[in-house]
Design a protein around this nucleic acid. Structure first.
Lengths: 363, 363
DNA sequence: CTGAAAGCGCTAACAA
DNA sequence: TTGTTAGCGCTTTCAG
């Protein structure tokens, strides 16, 4: 069966198409109440659904947003960004085109062209982790960058405030009384997450604030994984007692999970013997550790919302070029006061080699 | 500046719009090579980009697919489904509208209407976990269900073959020599994942095949989380030695992570003392356990691909109503042969209450 | 208070 | 081998 058009409604209601259009769009006009009702009834009766295509063509406005992302949900929590963006789009009657480029420049170019061809009203360019991105050629000037900062100036963007987040994490530890606070960073050098340096800076600033000198021995690096975290923390725990950290700030939750392993392998307890704080608040990791991991949350949902809101022209005022979003500390059970200095339990092993199943009691 | 239209190209090239259309669409026609080149050059010169809107309106075909999902990336790995779908769409020049309904029926209705108004060429209805869904009113008859089975018949759908997956997991354990194999299931009753029963059935069938009687004492339940898994497994480990399982099949990786905790708390080793197998292959959990968890993968990416392929009319032949997709076993290091029956190390505690920091050696 | 008609940008039938 | 023209379904001036 053929599509039912506005003219069918008009015929059914015994009016012109103009009238139907006016009525159904609630356009300001002097159409009688009686006619309005007749039109609406007719529309219902024939099952009329206006064509967005025709309307878009006519109005040159499609109520459609393009969202280009480099990697969809490679990082699991990043789906929250989509959800945030999706959410406000929906509430404003917008539909979103999602294009995943897999980081391929050709695909990206094609995507930009395709979205332009669709005459999307706005474009969002999202990265699945906070970094600096090259501005793809052809991207509309009013595109909004989500979870990344464009190399070129003049674009609007929203990113997590990783510096403040790093500071908040460190403050959490300092506030609990710690002085020997280690920082376990990612060792990534290529395509390095700028979050790495920002979080470290935040950490340093808080140490300075608190008047504690940063001890280079308390800085370790590893690959971003539980293994990497375990190895890095293991080294830290090899330090002589008086230098050993009483708290460790890990670049992210995956590394923190590795920290747990290393700590457990020594027979130390969290947080009694050592406090751990992570970053990212990955539900599947942080909340499920034993004890649950205190960490800093990345405001993915909120960033997604923000990006869509500026893309849609809500939030017109506060359009500073780049918006930093707060990363709140999520308090769980892995941070406590440092062990009393008097009792120096030296339960830890001296061996450098960890066995995998080291939870097994020593004998 | 106004949009450049096909007529602009025609004027620039000194030909008619028909010619331009024919050339740029590579339509079979007898246009001279010379003209073709002139047209293409002109198109480039004026920076022409055809309007998908106008074309869609004219052809009644939009090259656009609607993808409705209940919860976007609440379950992290589910993003892989989107990636799969996205991927084949892109390769076929299709753009996808993603709408997330958050499980709200009103939103769903609105989404269906909006997609119809956009005249999408096909619709995919995705659930973020395998279950039976009510068919939303107004959904096109040719919609494809992704990771869910519609209540009503007559629709095409793709789901993981959880029964075979459960069997594969059990077979992995039986093959390693185990006979006392526990099954730790989800205790969910509302909106119960049908995977729960299917995996259990697969497990039972393999036990039967192998001639081992299913021991009701080796069935445990818990909430789907590390905690739930830990509690359930903890009970299992309380069984008398001769009844205690030598291997445990957990409903999913999260529960398996809990199993690790419970096992460690007893001072037992994986896989030397007890083998564990999970389900889902959640990277952040399975691959990062110590030792890495052997598990069964959910073929999310492949299901996404499949759904999009049937939606696009590729795979016309094999359109059985519901397609089951294989769940392959991912071998890592948590499965080994059962401990030799002669040496019965009874290291485990007898207390029922586990302390959180039980990795600490007993003293 | 309501209707006629132009036109958004394109494709496809038909003409030349 | 190429051009003319109708029309996809809608909104929106402009007339009545």
């Amino acid at each position: 069966m053929a599509r039912v058009r506005i003219s069918d409604v008009a015929a059914a209601a015994g009016v012109s198409v103009t009238t139907v259009s006016l009525v159904l769009n609630d356009a300001p006009s002097r159409i009688s109440q009686e006619t309005r009702e007749r039109v609406r009834a007719a529309a219902d009766a024939v099952g009329y659904a206006p064509s967005s295509l025709a309307r878009g063509l006519r109005q040159q406005r499609t109520n459609t947003i393009g969202l280009i992302s480099d990697q969809i949900a490679t990082t699991p929590y990043a789906g929250r960004m989509l959800a945030g963006a999706q959410d406000v789009a929906r509430r404003h009657g917008q539909l979103v085109f999602l294009v995943d480029t897999e980081g391929d420049a050709d695909v990206e170019r094609a995507a930009i062209r395709a979205l332009a061809a669709q005459q999307v009203d706005a474009t969002i360019y999202a990265s699945m982790w906070h970094r600096v991105v090259r501005v793809p050629e052809g991207l509309p000037r009013d595109a909004v960058f989500l979870d990344c900062t464009p190399e070129a100036p003049g674009f609007r963007s929203v990113v997590p405030d990783d510096r403040a987040g790093g500071a908040a994490a460190a403050r959490e530890l300092v506030g609990a009384g710690h002085r020997r606070i280690a920082f376990v960073n990612t060792a990534d050098t290529v395509d390095r997450p700028i979050a790495a340096d920002l979080r470290f800076e935040g950490y340093l600033s808080v140490l300075a604030e608190a008047g504690v000198a940063a001890d280079p021995a308390l800085y370790a690096q590893g690959e971003v994984s539980a293994r990497g975290g375990r190895e890095a923390v293991s080294q830290l725990l090899d330090l002589p007692d008086e230098q050993r950290p009483t708290a460790i700030f890990c670049f992210n939750d995956r590394m923190a999970a590795g920290a747990y392993m290393a700590v457990r392998a020594r027979g130390l307890r969290i947080p009694e013997d050592i406090s751990i704080i992570g970053y990212d608040d990955q539900q599947l990791i942080a909340a499920e550790q034993d004890p649950p991991l205190t960490t800093v949350a990345l405001p993915h949902y909120e960033m997604g919302r923000w990006a869509m809101e500026v893309a849609l022209g809500i939030r017109a005022g506060e359009t500073d070029a780049t918006h930093q979003m707060e990363c709140p500390v999520i308090r769980r059970d892995s941070v406590g006061p440092p062990p009393a200095l008097v009792a120096k339990p030296s339960r830890r092993r001296t061996s450098h080699t960890e066995r995998s199943h080291s939870a097994t009691p020593e004998r």
